[in-house]
Design a protein around this nucleic acid. Structure first.
Length: 440
RNA sequence: GUGCCUAUGGUGUAGCGGCAACACAACGCUCUGUGGCAGCGUUAUCACCGGUUCGAAUCCGGUUAGGCACCCCA
């Protein structure tokens, strides 16, 4: 439990305490405007191209939804979920992941009637009470794609394709797709037994953590990095040899489909996922510019609906970590954002009368779809022009007392310094004309 | 939850027991109707509390916060 005593904020100024964001949560700042805009713009465009529809579920859900869906024994639910009681006594949780809420909504709103399979995407914050670290915080944002209502391998492939299309649309270089299958409830227990058999007499050679994993989560033992465990792993049975024929066929189909689309992938027989609802296909995507953590992870979850107490409904989906994605974009050498900013117009008003008129004409320009900046709080023409330069405006409109009196305005091309006087009432079309002629 | 490291203007750093310095950013002025340059100015009781000392940003202890690794994950 957290201490009841309020913790002192770190920063103090003249003995006044300054608040800071709670541990592990950070602000998305104006300086990153273009990065987030690129992600949202590309995300929406790709989603529509791939026939995914928007869905948003509440950030708060009944805690039991995740306990049953994600699994009570998983780390996410056991030690990372924000759970609390509301004033009315309901036990709720900040969502740690997006798939269970989407399935809840599917069942509650009978979304199968909208289309089968249902293809949806969502974007929003997820919360996990973890120790913050590089690439990991207590609040992060995910873009998710889900396909519900059909278990065919073509949908596993489509989830992977839309994920890579998203990354490609953002010009993320050479994403690495790691893929595996974890079988189903027929073949997975079978494989688990084989693994137990293999390690039974080697337990004493494993590292401390893996001794524990042998009992709790034997699959995790396979991606341990301790040298002795890596050595033992070499001879360990791999799941591909123990798949039932249905799972085997399914996995082969998925691989064939992504090969047909020229997607490079790395089979990773040790890839597992930490959520109970997954079966068959699991995958993760890495960026070479951010190799330590995955930017996306997903898989098939044909058991989720049953775990939630409904009839079986197949599903497959992916979560893309947006902070990690943006970090990977930033870390890519020579990276260029895919969205081109529109040319901006800077409006300068000098003198009280002109300032008043400026507000009106700025509003007209904006109404016509022209991004218009200003720093009317500043007095002199020189200083306002300086701002125009700083914000890299394409054009500056100058309105002084003289112009207001004459019913005119000056349009200045910020690059060439060429100025023209135009009729004030035709300002919008004159500005439009000059923006259209520009090539950048 | 375990271990390790760090804390000086808005940002990045210097100072290593004796006057808190530099670069960049922001804002202002030189310059009241014309930007990019230049000069000047403003922005820090050195995270907090306590100890050692004639003297502490500097050494010691505690607190808080942040970072990194493990666990796990987007």
């Amino acid at each position: 439990m957290l201490s009841e005593k309020a913790k002192l904020p770190r920063k103090t100024r003249n003995k006044v305490q300054i608040f800071q964001s709670v541990k592990g949560m950070s602000d998305i700042l104006p300086k990153d405007h273009n990065w987030w805009k690129a992600v949202y713009d590309v995300g929406w465009e790709i989603s529509e191209l791939h026939d995914f529809y928007h869905i948003e579920t509440p950030i708060l859900e009944e805690a039991a939804l995740f306990e049953r869906g994600v699994g009570e024994m998983t780390d996410i639910v056991e030690k990372e979920m924000y759970v609390f009681k509301t004033r009315g006594g309901e036990r709720v949780a900040l969502r740690p992941e997006g798939t269970s809420p989407v399935m809840r909504s599917y069942l509650e709103n009978h979304l199968g009637y909208f289309s089968t399979p249902l293809k949806v995407f969502y974007v929003g914050p997820m919360f996990r009470y973890e120790r913050p670290q590089h690439g990991r915080s207590r609040e992060h944002h995910q873009w998710g794609f889900e396909i519900l209502g059909d278990g065919d391998a073509v949908y596993d492939a489509q989830i992977i394709l839309v994920t890579l299309a998203f990354l490609n649309g953002l010009r993320l270089k050479e994403p690495v797709l790691k893929i595996n299958t974890i079988g189903c409830r027929v073949c997975r227990p079978n494989y688990r037994n084989k693994l137990k058999d293999y390690y039974r007499h080697k337990k004493n050679k494993l590292c401390k953590d893996c001794e524990r994993r042998y009992e709790n989560n034997i699959f995790r033992l396979l991606d341990c990095k301790e040298p002795e465990c890596v050595e033992l792993k070499k001879e360990a049975p791999i799941i591909l040899d123990y798949l039932c024929s249905a799972c085997n066929t399914h996995f082969r189909s998925v691989l064939e489909l992504i090969e047909d689309n020229n997607i490079a992938y790395e089979p990773d027989p040790y890839l597992a996922r930490g959520l109970d609802y997954y079966n068959r296909t699991v995958f993760e995507v890495f960026s070479p510019s951010l190799p330590s953590v995955s930017v996306a992870g997903g898989g098939r979850y044909d058991y989720l609906a049953e775990l939630l107490g409904a009839r079986p409904i197949s599903g497959v989906g992916v979560g893309i970590g947006l902070e990690r994605l943006i970090e990977a974009m930033k870390a890519t050498e020579g990276y260029v954002l895919p969205v081109r900013p529109k040319p901006k117009t800077f409006f300068i008003g000098v003198g009280d009368e002109a300032k008043k008129a400026s507000v009106k004409y700025i509003n007209q320009l904006r109404f016509s779809g022209i991004q218009t900046l200003e720093s009317l709080g500043k007095k002199s023409l020189r200083v306002q022009l300086k701002s125009a330069d700083k914000y890299k405006a394409k054009l500056a409109v100058i309105l002084g007392q003289r112009e207001v009196f004459e019913g005119s305005a000056i349009i200045r091309d910020m690059k060439t310094g060429v100025q023209e006087t135009v009729v004030l009432d035709k300002l919008v079309e004159e500005v439009k004309k000059r923006l259209k002629n520009s090539h950048d």
